[in-house]
Simulated assay, not measured.
Amino acid sequence: MLEFAAMETHVKASVKKACKAVGGQRAMASALGIGAPQVNQWVTGRRGVPAKYCQSIVDLTEGLVTVQELRPADWHLIWPEPKSTEIEAIHSNHYDPNEGNKP
Rank of each mutant, 00 (worst) to 15 (best):
M1Y: 13
F4G: 02
A5F: 11
A5Q: 11
A6K: 14
M7K: 13
E8H: 12
E8Q: 11
T9N: 11
H10Q: 07
V11G: 00
K12M: 10
A13G: 08
A13T: 07
S14R: 00
V15L: 00
V15A: 02
V15D: 00
K16I: 04
K16W: 05
K17I: 03
A18V: 01
V22M: 03
V22F: 05
G23N: 04
A27N: 09
A29F: 13
A29H: 15
A29E: 10
L32Q: 02
G33K: 02
G35V: 02
A36H: 12
Q38E: 13
V39L: 08
N40M: 13
R46F: 08
P50K: 03
P50D: 01
C54T: 15
S56Y: 00
S56M: 08
I57C: 03
V58L: 03
V58T: 01
D59I: 03
T61P: 04
T61G: 07
E62A: 08
E62H: 08
E62F: 04
E62I: 06
G63R: 00
T66S: 09
Q68T: 06
L70R: 01
R71A: 01
A73Q: 14
A73L: 09
W75M: 06
H76S: 11
H76W: 14
H76L: 08
I78H: 07
W79L: 11
P80D: 03
K83T: 15
S84N: 10
E86D: 15
A89W: 12
H91S: 12
S92P: 05
N93Q: 15
H94C: 06
Y95N: 08
D96I: 06
P97K: 07
N98P: 00
N101C: 06
N101E: 08
P103T: 12
P103E: 07
P103R: 01
